[in-house]
């Protein structure tokens, strides 16, 4: 070994301490390695030992994982305290779906990629004829994240409208309607479905519409045909370019051809998520 303590002082360098390598890479390196991993991976590695746990809590790691609008979501929307909390704790708080608007909407961030997701319950939408029990009923079911769906027995004029004003982080988002033909029913503990009112969907397609922040309307049509299965119907995508102002969108589901009735439809919710996550969902 050429280097020793005396040669260090000969050169006037004294800020070096010889460290064992391999089993002891510096904590700064560990933190940097962790910063390249997904949130779930980082949390897993916190279990390795105390040094990893300390490194895994560094704010600089989590700052990049948190969506840019986390203060808006936690403080303004949910009324939670942000000050004094670690970025990691903020991430954990946000990764659980949080209800707002009287429980008719939920917001959360995806644990894998940190993207902001929203769901809007059927109770948070305007449904034509919803107060008339001959047409529509709210029925409780654990097949919905909101524990309730709007069930259409029979109607001529199907119209479900909703809108949302939300401060999204920049990016492209996809919007889906979660629908099922058939009424959820439970036989003992097994999932079951009642098809007795299902009719009229093979005659004309339903129409989905999305009005994007820049005022464009995206329209898609689709025949509903999957009986007894919840389907996420892709309505359209929208782009958010400014994360400092609220983005306004409108969406609807209609079938207003009054020459025939239709029925047996469950409307659960509308889901909005980053387009990267949307690929996992089936579309219309």
């Amino acid at each position: 070994m050429g280097a020793n303590a005396s040669s260090i002082s000969d050169d006037g360098l004294n800020y070096v301490s010889l460290k064992p390598k391999l089993d002891d890479i510096p904590e700064a390196c560990v933190a940097l390695v962790l910063s390249y991993l997904d949130p779930i991976e980082i949390c897993k590695l916190a279990r390795i030992n105390r040094a990893f746990r300390a490194a895994s809590s560094a704010d600089f790691i989590w700052e990049t994982k948190l969506s840019s609008n986390y203060k808006y979501i936690l403080q303004e929307l949910l009324g939670l305290k942000v000050a004094g909390l670690d970025k990691k704790d903020l991430f954990a708080k946000l990764s659980r779906p949080r209800p707002f608007d009287g429980g008719t909407k939920e917001v959360w961030i995806d644990k894998n990629n940190g993207g902001v997701c929203l769901a809007i319950s059927s109770k948070g939408m305007a449904i034509t004829g919803i107060d008339d029990r001959r047409y529509w009923n709210h029925i409780p079911t654990d097949e919905s994240r909101f524990q309730t769906v709007a069930y259409l027995q029979q109607i001529w004029w199907l119209e479900v409208d909703g809108d949302l004003e939300f401060q999204f982080p920049e990016g492209t988002y996809s919007l889906f309607f979660r629908l099922q033909l058939g009424k959820p029913a439970k036989r003992l503990i097994r999932r079951a479905c009642n098809y007795e009112h299902v009719h009229g969907w093979d005659l004309k397609p339903v129409q989905f519409q999305l009005t994007t922040p820049d005022g464009c309307r995206v329209t898609s049509r689709c025949y509903l045909d999957n009986v007894g299965i919840w389907v996420q119907h892709h309505v359209g995508d929208f782009v958010v370019r400014d994360d400092t102002v609220p983005t306004k969108i409108k969406f609807s589901l209609t079938q207003i051809d009054c020459t025939h009735t239709k029925g047996g439809l469950c409307v659960d919710s509308v889901l909005i998520c980053p387009i990267s996550l949307a690929k996992q969902l089936s579309s219309c």
């Binding site: 089993d23 897993k44 030992n49 105390r50 746990r53 990764s95 644990k111």
Partner: peptide, 24 residues
């Protein structure tokens, strides 16, 4: 891989696991 020994007590390990329940 890192050649690290686990320096957690069983109690601590349990606690860390709990802390990250949301992720696992």
């Amino acid at each position: 891989i890192f050649n690290i020994s686990n320096d957690y007590t069983p109690d601590e390990e349990e606690k860390v696991r709990d802390e990250h329940k949301w992720a696992h």
